[in-house]
């Protein structure tokens, strides 16, 4: 019995390593609408995604789009750009949600859905796997 358990653990650890390795090679692209001519300083990107900056430099209202939990690009983005673990991000939005100070961004299931929304909404900003980016949106930064 314990032999089976051990091998299970080994398998899981192996799987986990494989997973993290794959993830850390994926680049994440921050995208906005093609018509968006605002400039965003690199240091502002995390503040935008944490809801602290609510308007672009041109005055347009920002609509932040997130990927669903457990999407590799989301882990990557939260780690590299927001500098927070997944549970820290969740805790951050819980604080705002239960004190009436803010709502977490809308979540989409796939890069394709994020692309489509950003392409159709001028004030939108989101992130996707860099490889998924196409000409329908403007990439402002890759991490």
């Amino acid at each position: 019995m314990s032999v089976i358990k051990k091998s299970n653990i080994k398998f899981l650890v192996g799987l986990f390593c494989l997973f993290t390795t794959t993830v850390s090679f994926a680049e994440v692209a921050v995208i906005v609408n093609k018509a968006n001519n605002a400039t965003i300083a690199d240091s502002d990107i995390s503040r935008v995604f944490l809801g602290k900056v609510k308007a672009f430099s041109n005055g347009d209202k920002i609509t932040v789009i997130n990927l669903k939990f457990k999407k590799p690009a989301r882990n990557e983005f939260e780690d590299k750009v927001l500098n927070k673990s997944a549970s820290q991000v969740k805790a951050y939005w819980s604080k705002l949600m239960f004190s009436g100070k803010g709502k977490p961004p809308k979540e989409f299931a796939s890069d394709k859905d994020v692309l489509a929304f950003v392409a159709a909404n001028q004030g939108a900003i989101g992130y996707i796997e860099a490889a998924s980016a196409d000409g329908s949106v403007k990439v402002i930064k890759t991490f």
């Binding site: 805790a91 819980s94 239960f98 100070k101």
Partner: peptide, 24 residues
């Protein structure tokens, strides 16, 4: 943002989400 009704007194750093243990 203006609020009217029953709400928290922002005494402390964690007042706003005092009971949301997940957040601290």
């Amino acid at each position: 943002r203006l609020l009217a009704g029953r709400q928290r007194i922002p005494f402390y750093m964690y007042s706003d989400f005092l009971d949301v243990s997940y957040a601290y």
